[in-house]
Computed example of a mutant assay.
Amino acid sequence: MPTISELSDVLDWAAVTALRAIDERDGAGLDALVDATGLDRERVANRCQQLSTLGLVTETEVDGGTVYEVTGSGHGAIGSGLYDEYDLVGEADLDELAAQVAELLERRDELQAQVEDLERDAVELRERAELQFGDRADVSEEFESLLADVKSLERALDEG
């Protein structure tokens, strides 16, 4: 039997997705696998053939077509962490990721508002400093540097 490393070199995520669908259903035909994986029929058939050639699944002919089942070697590979080698994302994971993305976007919006407040405060403070200190070069340089940093933050947030 090939090692997990060797299987990782040969199998792509579509093959592992098909294997997982077969495993979760304790065997399945091509139509069920197409429905379960969302992959096109030709791709599923190709990956099932690949899995069969590697000895990870067996093919049994029945009246309705071919049924694929995970072999002992397939279960061994799965138990040894084959799925862990691939970033397979399930429905629950997608919901969690969507919530995290929404939270990050909200935090970015809050940061943008804070940066805008910071810019307004810096401009206001510069105006007050100019009234108090006049045209001192060192004071002007400090405020220009501060405003450049604020603009840099704005650009970074806009690009993110």
Rank of each mutant, 00 (worst) to 15 (best):
M1P: 12
M1Y: 13
I4K: 07
S8T: 15
S8F: 14
V10K: 14
W13G: 09
W13R: 15
A14H: 10
T17M: 07
A18T: 15
R20D: 07
D23Q: 06
R25K: 15
G29P: 07
D31F: 03
D31S: 15
D31L: 07
L33R: 00
L33V: 10
V34A: 09
D35Y: 06
A36R: 08
A36G: 04
T37A: 01
G38V: 05
L39Y: 13
D40I: 07
R43E: 09
V44I: 11
A45N: 08
C48E: 04
C48L: 15
Q50K: 12
G55I: 10
V57N: 07
T58L: 01
E59T: 11
V62R: 08
G64Q: 09
T66W: 05
T66C: 02
H75N: 10
G81A: 03
Y83D: 09
D84Y: 03
Y86T: 10
L88T: 10
D93P: 01
D95N: 02
D95F: 06
A98V: 08
Q100P: 01
L105P: 00
L105F: 02
E110A: 15
A113H: 11
E116K: 11
D117C: 02
E119M: 05
A122Y: 00
A122H: 00
V123M: 12
L125W: 01
R126F: 05
E127M: 00
Q132K: 09
G134A: 02
G134Y: 04
D135K: 01
D138S: 14
V139Q: 03
S140H: 05
E142G: 02
S145K: 09
S145A: 12
L146I: 12
K151S: 12
K151A: 15
R155F: 02
R155E: 10
D158N: 08
